[in-house]
Amino acid sequence: MDVFMKGLSKAKEGVVAAAEKTKQGVAEAAGKTKEGVLYVGSKTKEGVVHGVATVAEKTKEQVTNVGGAVVTGVTAVAQKTVEGAGSIAAATGFVKKDQLGKNEEGAPQEGILEDMPVDPDNEAYEMPSEEGYQDYEPEA
């Protein structure tokens, strides 16, 4: 019985440690998101679009440190934060509304985080759909 109880105690310690790591990862992701939003706020009209992409990228980098179902929630929060940063930029006159959601080359930025393969159960990952990809044929 002692062996059984000791095993359960060790398992509990492992769960607590994993929860603490997840909590730490979420806190880091939130900190990076805040950094990115402050970065966007300090940019001029020309830099705002690039700044919004930076927020998304920093958040995406930190999301990889967070495991399990938390990833889905962090990704949703990050996307809403990026959308909010863009709205703030438009409201303050840093950028025109028609410039939001495009990178410096004018290509749409939507789907940055949505296409990231995420499995809350950590069982399997699927690649994003290939609808947006084109076949590449090298020139002879």
Rank of each mutant, 00 (worst) to 15 (best):
M1C: 00
D2M: 04
V3A: 03
V3D: 01
V3W: 02
V3T: 00
F4S: 00
M5Q: 00
M5T: 01
K6W: 03
G7T: 09
L8R: 00
S9V: 14
S9C: 09
S9R: 14
S9E: 08
K10Q: 05
K10W: 06
K10N: 04
A11V: 15
K12I: 03
G14R: 12
G14P: 01
V15P: 00
V15A: 04
V16T: 06
A19C: 03
A19M: 05
A19E: 00
E20S: 03
K21E: 00
K21N: 03
K21P: 00
T22S: 07
K23Q: 10
Q24P: 00
Q24N: 07
Q24Y: 12
Q24I: 10
G25I: 10
V26A: 02
V26I: 12
A27S: 05
A27W: 11
E28G: 02
E28C: 05
A30W: 05
A30N: 00
G31F: 14
G31D: 06
G31S: 15
K32H: 09
T33Y: 02
E35N: 14
G36D: 02
V37D: 00
V37L: 15
V37K: 01
Y39R: 10
Y39T: 03
Y39D: 01
Y39S: 05
V40E: 00
V40Q: 00
V40W: 02
V40C: 05
V40D: 00
V40Y: 12
V40M: 12
G41W: 09
G41S: 12
S42N: 12
S42L: 10
S42C: 08
K43Q: 05
K43H: 05
K43G: 01
K43M: 15
T44V: 10
K45T: 13
K45V: 15
K45A: 09
E46G: 11
E46M: 12
G47M: 07
G47W: 11
G47V: 13
G47I: 08
V48F: 06
V49W: 12
H50K: 10
G51D: 01
G51W: 15
G51I: 15
G51H: 09
V52M: 14
A53T: 04
A53G: 07
A53R: 05
T54R: 15
T54G: 07
V55C: 08
V55A: 06
A56Q: 05
E57Y: 06
E57S: 04
E57N: 10
K58L: 12
K58W: 11
T59C: 10
K60G: 03
K60I: 10
E61I: 06
Q62P: 02
Q62M: 06
V63P: 01
V63H: 01
V63C: 05
T64P: 03
T64Y: 11
T64A: 13
T64K: 05
V66L: 11
V66D: 01
G67E: 02
G67M: 12
G67H: 07
G68I: 15
A69D: 02
A69G: 06
A69Y: 14
V70E: 02
V70I: 10
V70R: 01
V71N: 02
V71T: 05
V71C: 04
V71Y: 05
T72H: 15
T72P: 02
T72R: 11
G73W: 12
G73K: 11
G73T: 12
G73S: 13
V74I: 05
V74K: 01
T75N: 07
T75S: 08
T75A: 15
A76Q: 07
A76R: 09
A76E: 05
V77N: 01
V77G: 04
A78F: 14
Q79D: 03
Q79C: 12
K80F: 15
K80T: 04
K80W: 14
K80H: 08
T81I: 06
T81N: 02
V82Q: 05
V82S: 05
V82H: 05
E83W: 15
G84M: 15
G84W: 10
A85P: 03
A85Q: 02
A85Y: 14
S87V: 13
S87C: 08
S87W: 14
I88F: 02
I88Y: 12
I88D: 04
I88H: 02
A89N: 02
A89Q: 06
A89I: 13
A91M: 13
T92C: 12
T92Q: 02
G93L: 12
G93W: 08
G93D: 06
F94V: 03
K96C: 15
K96D: 07
K96A: 11
K97L: 08
K97Y: 02
K97W: 14
K97S: 14
D98K: 07
D98A: 05
D98C: 14
Q99Y: 12
Q99K: 03
K102G: 04
N103A: 06
E104A: 12
E104L: 07
E104N: 08
E105N: 10
E105K: 02
G106Y: 07
G106D: 03
G106S: 15
G106M: 07
G106W: 09
A107S: 09
A107W: 10
P108E: 14
Q109Y: 10
Q109D: 11
I112G: 08
I112F: 04
L113P: 10
L113M: 07
E114A: 03
E114Q: 04
E114P: 06
D115M: 09
D115H: 10
P117T: 08
P117D: 08
P117M: 06
P117R: 03
V118S: 08
V118M: 09
V118R: 07
D119W: 03
D119N: 05
D119C: 15
P120I: 09
P120Y: 05
P120C: 06
P120K: 06
D121N: 08
D121L: 09
N122H: 03
N122L: 06
A124G: 09
A124S: 11
A124T: 03
Y125N: 08
Y125M: 03
Y125E: 07
Y125H: 15
E126F: 04
M127K: 13
M127T: 04
M127L: 12
S129T: 08
E130F: 10
E131G: 04
Y133I: 02
Q134F: 11
Q134D: 08
Q134A: 07
Q134N: 10
D135A: 04
D135P: 04
Y136I: 10
E137N: 05
E137S: 13
E137P: 05
E137M: 06
E139D: 10
E139F: 14
A140T: 08
A140G: 14
A140R: 12
A140C: 13
